[in-house]
């Protein structure tokens, strides 16, 4: 298992999948900040004051990390950012499920009206596993 996860091909595939998902998801949300701001508000965890700035910045963190991951730049840093985001997303989804909110997850902007639920949790966990593998097995580029 370890040799599979640490092989260059596997890590490359993981990088490409994560990069595409995050670039795509980020761009969709960045294009319509007002919609995303409302999706953020629906989770009911962020104050009104911070809701817009979060909706403006988070999609671009996703896009930038995705692009850097695709080009193989700062792999450990970007896989950390993406993994932390995925953990945060899952906490948000889980709390929404526990509170019984059947809200659109807002994950890919307005193009998919996916409701928060177990499927979303599993998808995020799968992506998280890829992110952690990239962090664990890719070489540090800190000194480049």
């Amino acid at each position: 298992m370890t040799s599979f996860l640490s092989s260059n091909i596997t890590l490359l595939v993981f990088r490409i999948i994560l990069a595409i998902v995050f670039i795509f998801a980020g761009m969709e949300k960045a294009a319509n900040p007002a919609d995303f701001s409302e999706a953020v508000a629906n989770y009911r965890v962020i104050s009104l004051f911070l809701q817009n700035i979060v909706a403006i910045v988070i999609p671009w963190v996703e896009v930038v990390s995705g692009i850097l991951l695709l080009y193989g730049k700062f792999l450990k840093e970007n896989s950390t950012i993406i993994s932390v985001l995925l953990i945060a997303f899952n906490i948000l989804v889980l709390q929404a499920m526990l509170r019984g909110l059947d809200i659109d997850c807002g994950c890919f902007g307005t193009i998919d009206a996916q409701i928060v639920g177990f499927r979303k949790l599993l998808e995020n966990f799968a992506l998280l596993a890829m992110g952690i593998s990239i962090f664990r097995f890719s070489k540090s580029e800190t000194n480049d």
Binding site: W60, V64, S65, E77, T80
Partner: peptide, 18 residues
């Protein structure tokens, strides 16, 4: 350096977004 790089990436993204 690792933490600094993360801060730079986040700041750069925030700047782009804003």
């Amino acid at each position: 350096q690792f933490l600094l790089n993360i801060v730079y990436i986040l700041l750069g993204s925030a700047l782009l977004g804003i």
